[in-house]
Design a protein around this nucleic acid. Structure first.
Lengths: 252, 252
DNA sequence: AGTTTAATTCAAAAAAGTTCAAGTTAAATC
DNA sequence: GATTTAACTTGAACTTTTTTGAATTAAACT
């Protein structure tokens, strides 16, 4: 492949994905890491992208560190599979809520094709990503948490209370055998509860590693929602409550 | 094959493909690499194409040059000077509003040192930047405009109506001799008006090039605020309304 | 700590530049 | 009209430069 061509592929890929790993580009262009690194150095010098540890970021992507951790995180493949699966539930013309968080963030690219879609979110990165995909986006404001970049607090709750969603897609950090949906942080829990309350249908996105885990605050009951998760281990299956709607997203 | 004919074929192929390899052209024209190289040298000299290692690229292809957008917009230095000047107006312990926009965005780094500061903004990038500087941040939600990434609309206005700021820092696109503060977009104008209404003191940030410019919507009167701008040209001075508080930020 | 990613270095491979002999063409000469 | 010569084009052989991938060392992240 021509150097020129390869660098264009990289540019295009970065335009679409905002962030990418060196390895991804190797597979994409069928070249070695050395070559990709050299390309990235050149492209950075040309002002097309910014190099970050492990890959590169689009120059006009402000979401920086958080989404970087999103992309390079551990169960990334599982999260994408869950997100893709969940995205299939979305109907054209609907108003959906996308919770702040890494798994739900991954839904956005899969939503880009759906017609007349409006997404509402309290995640800054999610909003920016959606805008980048030409999706009509409404952001829940409020105090922004420094670690997760999620809108929380009374301002957020008040704004949420006036909205009604076709469906909410919410991340959770834990699910126990009694069907408690849990998260470590009270303010985020309050928001998640409101997100559920305002939705006709709720989907909880959580990878299998979180089933059986317990956290400080319960924000809802599992039987009020559909759980979308990755392939379950035997241990995870034992920890699932009885009266539950659970769907496994299979990925290869 | 005639040289003339061969070069015509190369041109045509390049018009269609933007980019091509020497080998491709050899097959296409049934000639040796030497010949193709000689053709490419000639055609490059004629300004038809640009040679790259391994092939050539159409001169008409500007997708490459677009990437020269290391564009920190036009008056970047002036904007930083204005932002620095405006930031000095901020007192510790205050609640201030920072409007979405490039000039106001530049204030954020200068605000990082100020103790007990809470900033409220309707700009996504501004919020992320502030969070990055460990500043307590509240975001105004609402529909997010795709071009400016600013929160607008009724959701935003409603949320704003409940807040009160020590000071608002707002960008403007135009100021005429009657003291009209103007911006091109009605929805943003409505937000800017609300930002002014909720503030004890308003600072309008605009570089000198915008003084004398007119735009579609007026969102406020200059005598209700302090204008912070860059060094004024003679033309700009002539366009300034009489009853105005205006401060020039000097930069070297 | 240990693991992953990046920078550096070097040899192999690919491509470009260079040179030259053979082939073409066209005008000039016989 | 045929032959010669000069100008030009072409393809191959060779050298130089650029690009590439692997190996090693250094740095960064968890």
């Amino acid at each position: 492949m021509l150097t020129e061509k390869r660098q264009r592929v990289i540019e295009k890929y970065l335009d679409e994905h905002d962030l990418c790993q060196v390895i991804e580009l190797c597979h994409l262009t069928q070249t070695s890491e050395s070559t990709i690194r050299r390309d990235l150095i050149q492209l950075e010098k040309a002002g097309v992208l910014t190099r970050v540890h492990g890959g590169a970021r689009s120059i006009r992507d402000f979401s920086r560190d958080v989404s970087q951790h999103v992309r390079f995180g551990r169960n990334h493949q599982a999260k994408i599979a869950i997100a893709r699966y969940a995205a299939h539930k979305v109907q054209p013309g609907s108003y959906i809520f996308i919770d702040a968080g890494t798994t739900t963030y991954e839904m956005v690219p899969f939503l880009a094709q759906i017609r007349d879609l409006t997404i509402v979110t309290n995640g800054l990165e999610t909003a920016l990503c959606a805008l980048g995909h030409q999706i009509e986006t409404i952001l829940i404001g409020g105090r922004i948490k420094a670690d997760t970049h999620a809108g929380v607090g009374t301002f957020a709750l008040k704004q949420l209370a006036t909205m009604n969603f076709t469906a909410s897609f919410i991340g959770a950090n834990g699910l126990d055998v009694q069907g408690h949906l849990m998260t470590p942080e009270p303010e985020e829990a309050a928001i998640k509860a409101a997100e559920m309350a305002q939705a006709q249908t709720t989907y909880i996105l959580m990878d299998a590693s979180k089933i059986g885990e317990r956290h400080f605050v319960t924000f809802g009951q599992a039987n009020q929602a559909t759980i979308v998760t990755s392939q379950l281990s035997q241990a995870a299956k034992a920890a699932i409550p009885a009266d539950i709607r659970l769907e496994e997203a299979i990925y290869s």
